[in-house]
């Protein structure tokens, strides 16, 4: 009985993975298609779409914009989110719970509403289509995740370790550097990865606040598939999947993914 139910559970997991990975399984052969239009299975095989991708200024430019943007947004989100989380977790001021709710509210808001609100606000401030505007918009999306992860991490720090360090002669700055930060490192890593991916992936809000002079990769892809349907998009997808995987592997090597998610 136990054996059967375990095999049953295993089968469900396999099915779920297949369901999640199926699109990627189709995209991969499509990217090596030699056809000029999307069809599955491809009639011929080639690397032409990867070559085309490298020489497509719109996509490569947008890729560079997105990487730079996600890096800046991640750095700022970590800075704002971690300090806010520290204040929220350690402080005992009035309205603390309300503040935490406010900081994490964007998590519950549909992106369309958020995008529209940002569009209305930014248009009157002249921030539409500008770099600071897009950074701000992405910060609104990413910071709540950082605040959420870091407040949880701070709340689950082993009790007394910071006090212990203080009684052993460590000044507050030293306590943070030698005890708090090392213990928070897995959470910082997780927040950084999540923040980078959210910023890099963001379509809806970006559609509202980017302009012709500043286009992120997801927006560029969105615009591209609006007008054309060729395997170039499959090649882009494979590059993105490979890039994300490489990132995950790097983190796994650096801090261990199991530690990063708190295992």
């Amino acid at each position: 009985m136990v054996g059967t139910s375990r095999y049953g559970a295993g089968a469900v997991v396999v099915a779920l993975y297949l369901f999640l990975l199926a699109p990627i399984a189709i995209v991969l052969p499509l990217s090596f298609s030699g056809d000029s239009y999307l069809s599955f299975p491809p009639a011929s095989w080639s690397l032409r779409w990867y070559v085309a991708l490298l020489s497509h200024d719109g996509l490569t430019g947008a890729f560079k914009v997105s990487v730079a943007l996600a890096s800046v947004v991640t750095a700022l989100a970590l800075l704002c989110g971690t300090t806010a989380a520290y204040a929220l977790a350690r402080g005992t001021f009035r309205g603390r719970d309300a503040l935490l709710a406010l900081f994490t509210a964007p998590l519950l808001l549909p992106s369309v509403i958020l995008g529209l609100a940002l569009l209305l606000t930014f248009s009157s401030w002249g921030l539409l289509g500008t770099y600071p505007g897009v950074v701000l918009a992405h910060l609104v999306l990413c910071t709540p995740y950082v605040v959420r992860i870091m407040t949880t991490a701070l709340a689950t720090l082993p009790p007394g370790v910071e006090d212990a360090a203080a009684t052993l002669g460590a000044a507050p700055g030293v306590v943070f550097r030698r005890v708090t930060l090392p213990l928070l490192l897995p959470a910082v890593t997780a927040s950084a990865v999540l923040s980078f991916l959210i910023s890099f992936d963001e379509v809806v809000v970006s559609l509202f606040v980017t302009g012709p002079r500043l286009v992120t990769l997801p927006v560029e892809i969105f615009n591209y598939v609006d007008t054309r349907t060729d395997p170039l998009i499959a090649a882009v997808s494979v590059v993105l999947v490979a890039g994300t995987l490489a990132g995950v592997v790097l983190i796994e090597r650096a801090v261990g993914l199991r530690r990063a998610v708190g295992g």
């Binding site: 082993p158 007394g160 006090d163 009684t167 213990l183």
Partner: peptide, 12 residues
């Protein structure tokens, strides 16, 4: 010197 109920050793 302070010794805590929950030990409070540095886990890292």
């Amino acid at each position: 010197g302070l010794v805590f109920q929950q030990y409070a050793l540095f886990p890292h």
